[in-house]
Design a protein around this nucleic acid. Structure first.
Length: 154
DNA sequence: GCCAACGTTGGC
DNA sequence: GCCAACGTTGGC
């Protein structure tokens, strides 16, 4: 069982979009960063819990919780020339990019702001608070996940 | 919109 | 394989 934090820009895709999606599941596609790709391809398992984080917006922070319902598989958007995520250097034989499916679980009654997360004494490892981590998919240690979840539900 | 801090690219 | 230039991310 692993824990994660996925960033999303709410202008493009928000926690409400996930909540309102049919079946409340979504393909988490379009990740084009190798480190994040490796997590998606190799480490995300069905049943893993995922914080949804809103970035690049007025209020940045953790807004909800989701669950991985499909482990890493080939992101088909990389082969579609019409897609924003098209990668002409990727081939069917050796795909570069992977995605997972997640299912909505919960939207917290209020956002847990980045500022608060950074101020929490027991949150030291998560990529968010370490300088210079711009990862869009990052692992969260169990103890930090639990602290954050408690703070979200408070 | 600014800009710091990354990641990627490509010439050599 | 180095590293400068460039592009992107993301908080503010």
């Amino acid at each position: 069982m692993n824990y994660w934090l996925f960033k999303t820009e709410p202008d493009a895709f928000s926690i409400d979009d996930l909540k309102n999606a049919p079946e409340q599941t979504e393909h988490w596609d379009g990740i084009r960063n190798y480190q994040a790709r490796n997590f998606l391809r190799d480490t995300v398992n069905v049943g893993d819990l995922v914080f949804i984080y809103h970035s690049s917006c007025k209020q940045v922070g953790i807004v909800g919780l989701a669950e991985a319902v499909k482990a890493g598989y080939v992101d088909h958007t990389q082969f579609n020339p019409e897609s924003n995520y098209y990668d002409p250097k990727s081939t069917i034989e050796k795909p570069r990019w992977y995605m997972v499916d997640i299912q909505f679980k919960q939207k917290f009654s209020q956002i847990l702001p980045l500022k608060t997360i950074k101020a929490m004494d027991d949150i030291k490892e998560i990529g968010l608070v370490k300088k210079g981590h711009r990862l869009s998919i990052m692992p969260v240690q169990k103890n930090e996940f639990e602290s954050l979840l408690t703070a979200c539900e408070a």
